Simulated assay, not measured.
Amino acid sequence: MSTGSGRFRARRAARAGAVNAGAAAPEVISGEAAWELVELAQRGDSRACGHLHVRYRAQVAGFLRSRLADLGTVEDLVHETFARALHGIGAVQRGGAGTIRGRGP
């Protein structure tokens, strides 16, 4: 076995552990508290972005794990989901009756 393949397995195991670590994640927030974090993130507050990631990561990972067998793919998609969410956070606005709307791509 080559050193390269061992490193690959170690990275894959670390990612799998990161996906499974979501079980002890903080409680998901909603309502006004969630909107406060979104609005702070829209103004560039990196701590608010971090809080959103911590609060919703386990929920996103759980959804993906229920549909995909490969934990490495799950971790990649969790990362991609949050990267896209952060990139588009400025387009998020409050809708009626507590809904969230985007302003387009």
Rank of each mutant, 00 (worst) to 15 (best):
M1D: 15
M1C: 14
S2Y: 06
T3G: 09
S5Q: 06
S5I: 15
S5L: 13
S5A: 12
G6P: 03
R7P: 00
R11T: 07
R12Y: 01
R12E: 11
R12W: 02
R12V: 02
A13N: 06
A13S: 10
A13H: 07
R15Q: 09
G17S: 02
G17Y: 00
V19W: 01
V19F: 01
N20M: 13
A21V: 00
A21K: 04
A21M: 01
A21D: 10
G22I: 01
A23Q: 08
A24E: 02
A25I: 03
P26W: 12
E27N: 05
V28C: 01
I29Y: 02
I29F: 02
I29A: 02
G31Y: 04
G31T: 11
A33W: 05
A34T: 00
W35I: 07
W35Y: 07
V38M: 15
V38K: 13
E39D: 13
E39A: 03
E39G: 10
L40C: 04
A41C: 03
Q42H: 12
R43H: 14
G44F: 10
G44E: 09
G44A: 07
G44I: 11
G44C: 09
D45P: 06
D45Q: 04
R47F: 06
R47K: 12
R47D: 12
A48Y: 05
A48M: 02
G50Q: 08
H51E: 14
L52V: 10
V54F: 04
R55Y: 01
R55N: 01
R55F: 01
Y56F: 14
Y56P: 06
Y56H: 15
R57N: 02
R57I: 00
A58G: 09
A58W: 03
A58P: 08
V60Y: 06
A61Y: 03
A61R: 03
G62A: 06
G62F: 09
G62D: 14
F63K: 04
L64D: 03
A69D: 13
D70P: 07
D70S: 10
T73R: 15
V74D: 06
E75W: 05
E75N: 04
D76C: 05
L77Q: 15
V78E: 09
H79G: 13
H79P: 00
A83C: 05
L86E: 13
L86F: 15
H87D: 14
G88I: 01
G88F: 10
I89E: 04
G90F: 07
A91K: 07
V92F: 12
Q93C: 10
Q93E: 15
Q93R: 15
G95W: 04
G96K: 13
A97M: 12
G98S: 11
G102I: 03
R103I: 02
R103N: 10
G104W: 06
G104V: 05
G104T: 11
P105T: 11
P105R: 15
P105S: 13
P105C: 02
